[in-house]
Simulated scan of single mutants.
Amino acid sequence: MAFHEVRFPANLSFGAIGGPERRTEIVTLASGFEERNTPWAHARRRYDAGMGLRSLDDLAALIAFFEARAGQLHGFRWKDWADFKSCLPSRAPAFDDQEIGRGDGLRVSFPLLKNYRSGAEIYARPVEKPVKDSVRAGIGGVELFPDGGFSVDHQTGLVTFAEPPAVGAEVTAGYEFDVPVRFDTDRIAVSVATFQAGEVPQIPVVEVRI
């Protein structure tokens, strides 16, 4: 599957409904106890792109985007307005928002991560589609800058430093990011009359693994 490095119109995704989905397999034993397991290491996000449509012009923009992606064939970027920063929604990204690794004196490349903490538990989510020119990074509490300090592959989320971080040095980053997705349908069914009357089409979008 090809991936198009283009973002779904952010003004249309603003009103979308969606979020993370997990898959849990549950077996209830004869004793009444449960065994729970999951085949997924990472959540998969789903959205409804139809909920952001407010006008016929919006509908036309959506259809054009859908046709350019050939329906489900090609993936694209999606801005999840509920979760698109390395920090809290009210803040601007800073170079020390997220720990993405520790130096060993040899390694120079580190994939971007977002850590979700609740109590003693931490889930590290891979971030593969950072927004261009939004990434800030640092080593050992000192911010570095792209003009010589590090570079970013915006298609994979890999940060590469000019020199390997020292052994034990904390490697951090802050950024905005998109979710890699595709349409989860090959068909858009809409009536202009019902749309103008307030009925919006369902246009499912699902996260893809890169």
Results as ranks from 00 to 15, higher is better:
A2T: 12
A2V: 12
F3E: 08
H4Y: 13
V6E: 10
V6R: 12
R7C: 15
F8M: 09
S13A: 15
F14C: 07
F14I: 13
G15L: 05
G19E: 06
P20Y: 10
E21N: 14
E21Y: 04
R23A: 14
I26P: 01
I26G: 00
I26R: 12
V27M: 07
V27S: 11
L29A: 13
A30V: 12
E34M: 09
P39Y: 15
A43S: 12
R46A: 09
D48H: 05
D48V: 05
A49Q: 03
L53D: 02
R54C: 10
S55C: 11
L56A: 12
D58W: 03
A60T: 15
A61E: 15
A64M: 08
A64W: 03
F65I: 08
F66A: 04
Q72H: 06
Q72A: 10
F76V: 04
R77P: 00
K79F: 00
D80Y: 03
D83I: 00
K85Q: 13
P89W: 06
P89Q: 09
A92F: 06
A94T: 08
F95D: 00
D96C: 01
D97N: 09
I100T: 00
G101L: 02
G101M: 04
G103N: 07
G105N: 13
G105R: 12
G105V: 11
L106A: 14
F110N: 00
L112Q: 01
L112R: 01
L112A: 02
L113F: 00
Y116L: 10
A120Y: 10
A120E: 14
I122T: 14
A124G: 09
P126W: 04
V127G: 00
V127M: 07
E128S: 12
E128C: 04
E128M: 07
V131N: 03
D133G: 01
S134E: 06
G138V: 06
G138M: 06
G141K: 13
G141H: 14
G141M: 10
V142N: 14
E143Y: 06
L144V: 04
P146R: 15
F150Q: 03
S151C: 04
T156H: 04
L158S: 08
V159R: 01
A162F: 08
P164F: 09
P165T: 14
P165R: 10
P165Y: 10
G168Y: 06
G168F: 02
A169D: 14
E170W: 03
G174A: 11
Y175K: 02
Y175E: 00
Y175I: 01
E176R: 15
E176D: 12
D178L: 05
V179I: 13
V181R: 03
V181D: 01
R182H: 14
A189E: 13
S191I: 08
V192Y: 02
A193P: 02
A193D: 15
T194N: 15
T194G: 05
F195R: 08
Q196N: 15
Q196L: 15
A197N: 13
G198P: 06
V200S: 08
P201T: 11
P201F: 05
P204D: 13
V205W: 01
R209W: 07
R209V: 10
R209E: 14
